[in-house]
Design a protein around this nucleic acid. Sequence first.
RNA 1: GCGCCUGUAGCUCAACUGGAUAGAGCGCUUGGCUACGGACCAGGAGGUUCUGGGUUCGACUCCUAGCAGGCGCACCA
Length: 577
Amino acid sequence: MNIFDKYLDKIKKILLDLSKNGDLILPDKLDGITTEIPPVKFNSDISTNVAMVLSKANNKPPIDLAVTLVEAIKKDDNLIDDISIIKPGFINIKFKPIFWTNFIEEIIKNSKTFGVNLKEKKNNYLVEFVSANPTGPLHVGHCRGAILGDVITNVLLFNKHKVTKEYYVNDYGNQIINFTKSVYYRIREIIYKEPFPKDNDDLYPGDYLIDFAQNIIDSNKKIDFNDYEKISEELTTLSIEEALKLIKSNLNILGINHDNFISEKKLVKNQEVEKVIDYLQKKAFVYKGTIKAPEGENNEKWVEREQLLFKSTDFGDDKDRALQKSDGAWTYFASDVAYHKNKLDRKFDYLINILGADHAGYIKRISSSVDALSGEKNKLICKVSQLVKLIKENKPFKMSKRKGDYITVDDLIKEVGKDATRFIMLNRSSDVELDFDFDSVKEKSKDNPLYYVQYCYARISSVFRHLNKDLNLDIKLDNYKFEYSNDEIKILKKISEWPKCIDSASSKLEPHRIPVYLYELASEFHSYWNLGKQQPEKRFINDQKSISPNKLIFLKAISNVIKSGMDIVGVDTPDKM
RNA sequence: GCGCCUGUAGCUCAACUGGAUAGAGCGCUUGGCUACGGACCAGGAGGUUCUGGGUUCGACUCCUAGCAGGCGCACCA
């Protein structure tokens, strides 16, 4: 039940009728015509810009057109209280209270689908996110992208799309060799008491490797760890398993579960890289050539060499990209192209990649490869999550990989909790840097929007509890015909915006709109709640310790929306706090 | 040098694919609890939306030229 869509359809129908009679000239497209939420001060419920959009084609001032249109809209609609025409040519519609009675009745009847866009075409999406290297635990830097990907998925699922969540495991290449060696040194440290070579910059210094080493020793008693060359392959597998186990548990405490983990190593082993390069070569997107040094100052070390290149410049990239290293191994990019071919072969409508800000420069080349492979544009959508600035005691907190003093997801969740982390990380557009202030996120007060929204739900639960009613049960609507007051309609109007919120969050992949909306809805509710202090008739529980059916349904409608929204965000809605 | 992101109230950020007199929280300030949960509410002050051009009925939003901050720019992944 999207009242904005409903009235937009109605207006478009009126336009078509009027144009058939020759009373109106329509432009080629009706896309520019919208129904919107009018600013509060106009005291109206829906507004439309139709008169202004049609003004040019008809060579008439918007106000004149509006007069005709208003007559047509008013006709046969007994739910409209008033229509006004405002300044440049907006048409503002104000509904009678009965409109809102019908509205709430309908959303209570269809509570499972309220907010879902049932008209749009449903797609099959693949969302790739996190994909952190399997060499250690997730840290705070991974967190925002992880949550972004998870909630984008939730929004799409809520809107009845099909979604697969995928993690690409980079278990191939030099870093894995270094990682395995590091584990090996830790094993020697444990078994042979040899000190770990701390000054070797290629190695991973983190203490978590001691746990990995110990676990591997404990569960592989038969292995002779003396000769690295003999066991390196097996140790690589075991080390990656350890890392993945840790990463999965980190994701788990964040409330994230991927459907698939795809191994880069397997793609390489299965010759998928050769196949995709063959394919691109046939299409003349791959050639042997050299890359020129960039214009910048410090390129003395630049070595030009002939190598296998992908012609990403054909698709708008600023240089072609290397596919093969000098030792003959594939570059990360090459196997990623193979991975994207693999994705395309699985016939998704859209591929979505969630990347961190430090990988934004990678987008052009990978989307070029997808364009080349699919022959389509916009098959791949990349979302970038900007940096998180950590703030502790009012000071920026810098993490350093070298010192190994980065904050892990485990630390973070232990300190501030899963729900607060998810809500705060989502409360801003992914395009802006985020200040994550440990102290205020931990605070259980008005400084923390999570608790503000949860408090709204808890208050509603409390009313139901006092009445011995179950908030989770459906409510019957027998003999239900009440009118709501202006204060209640104000909240119902907010509820009517929920489908619009979902629509834009889903179509633009901007989930931050949901926490922002929930905060606004909660705010309206708290206002209403406080009215009860002065006006007893605004209280939910009356002197006879019961509640009127319209208020009960009213509460139910609010809590339904809060609950769906919080479910999408992936946080709890406790009954008591 | 190039690419991407950002620039809105003192601070942190919204603004519904170009809509109306740009909105919230924090902070400052004036009030409100014997109450269904005060983890709350009502009011006030606070703005040349970084700058200059352009597009049009209309620009925080689009184009263009700058300025400032962040991220990235080899065969690391």
